[in-house]
Design a protein around this nucleic acid. Structure first.
Lengths: 258, 258
DNA sequence: CGTGATTTTGACGACACTCAAATAAAGTGG
DNA sequence: CCACTTTATTTGAGTGTCGTCAAAATCACG
């Protein structure tokens, strides 16, 4: 099961949501000539999922590849005893699907919000890749990035405690999909969390209660404030970065040039 | 940092160790025509590392790609507070290196045993990939496999207890590099562990003591026996598979047709 | 405003970590 | 080949973080 997070901003100004999967400059669409873009347009179609609908189930045959244009998807792995582990969240620009022959989904994918995606037939997708080596190399680079991200998460789960895990999670969330809602007011940076506490717990290898308690710890430590459960204001970024174990606060690279 | 584990057996009978990086049928060498093999031979060279030598350090510039032909390498991630997490072990046929421009190593790589590898200059490697789309697609497929393997490890670290983790580790080890030492005698399957307990602990997100205690638990439960600390006999595979959370015992696919 | 889901808070227990020491194994030099 | 040193592994006792069970408070939605 291929799962890649794009490093390039997908939401190009002027594109409507329904067309954003074609016209935008995400990883796969860039580096294509006019003929390639025409082929892309001809072979792709748009799929939509309501909130909480399954994109696919664990074990299901995966013969399509899709690029998310709107919304957030969670990747869930079920254990025989009923436990869950969420191995990642995907958003606009991220790629998900099967590229191997007769591939079965390694995990389930569920829409956290309303989701729109640009879909391709696997065979068409593979042929396009073969015809555009640069595109294939881009995908390989993106796969390398995903491998590094998963590696970081392994370090998080293997060697970090609850506060460190949550701090890293909040900072990750603030950097990925909150470019516009990241309105820096005098109190801090606002982050919207599209997932409930249970999903955060299943992502960080904790329980709902521990996640909630750690949120409470951060609030009483004045690191954050919680106007609503899913809206977190990061009021002490330095403390959070320190907890997360990052060496420094990276300079933001936002589309609008902040 | 690219890191791929090969799914194809590397040790082709008849190849000497020093030539195995060229002559073998590992993922990258297969699907190449005669001209491609010549190019591969011309651009590659052999590097050797003694036991416990670093292949590269975290943060170091990575402008080479290598394919391990002999030995085992551990991938280590250091945390600011001195803790370690081993994100994987690589062996014969596995690929490691940098393919991005001005890439810095995301983690360190250290030789667990004496190691030989087949090395490529990054630019040459990338050009070869561009000229052979099938090869690039193969790498993308291998990257997908690596992503799935890392995902499985995330599930292990996030939702499994010490016994389950160690059981999964032992079974994984018995399947990857023990095709010949897997002599099934009447007592069980022999597995040789090339790494010390500390590395197992750092891989499974545990401490040395917990790993040792869990080995002791398995021994007193008659799941395993330990003739020497690094040689484990799996005497109750069914129990280990059950612990690890695998649904069934997979049929072995060994080179010799077992 | 009322119902159901989500989140928070509390009390208690268990699994794994820390600290400490003993035992076993591996390497070294005579 | 054997004493010696060094490293690795095992075992023990006590502590702490996080999980489990339970209930209250808050939020979302019709």
């Amino acid at each position: 099961m291929l799962r890649l997070r794009s490093t390039i901003d997908c939401t190009t100004p002027g594109d409507s949501a329904s067309e954003s999967c074609i016209g935008c400059q995400i990883s796969i669409c860039s580096h294509l000539d006019a003929a390639g873009l025409d082929r892309l347009r001809a072979m792709s179609w748009t799929i939509k999922f309501a909130k909480n609908k399954m994109l696919f189930e664990q074990g299901e045959v995966l013969d399509r590849v899709c690029i998310i244009s709107v919304g957030v998807v969670k990747l869930v792995h079920l254990l025989p005893d009923g436990q869950k582990q969420i191995t990642g969240f995907l958003g606009p620009g991220d790629i998900l699907g099967g590229i191997k022959r007769q591939e079965n989904a390694h995990g389930s994918a569920k829409a956290l919000t309303a989701v729109e995606a640009c879909a391709f037939n696997r065979e068409n997708f593979l042929q396009l890749i073969k015809d555009y080596p640069d595109l294939c190399l881009n995908l390989l680079t993106a796969a390398t990035d995903e491998i590094e991200a998963l590696t970081d998460h392994i370090v998080l789960l293997g060697r970090k405690r609850a506060p460190q895990r949550l701090a890293a999670f909040l900072l990750m969330m603030s950097q990925r999909w909150n470019a516009d809602t990241d309105t820096a007011n005098n109190n801090g940076t606002m982050v919207h969390l599209p997932m409930p506490r249970a999903d955060i717990a299943d992502h960080l290898g904790l329980t709902i209660e521990t996640v909630s308690r750690t949120f409470g710890l951060f609030r009483s430590s004045k690191f954050i404030s919680i106007p609503r459960p899913n809206d977190i204001v990061l009021s002490n970024l330095a403390a959070l970065y320190d907890l997360a174990g990052f060496d420094e606060i990276p300079t933001r690279h936002v589309a609008l040039g902040l």
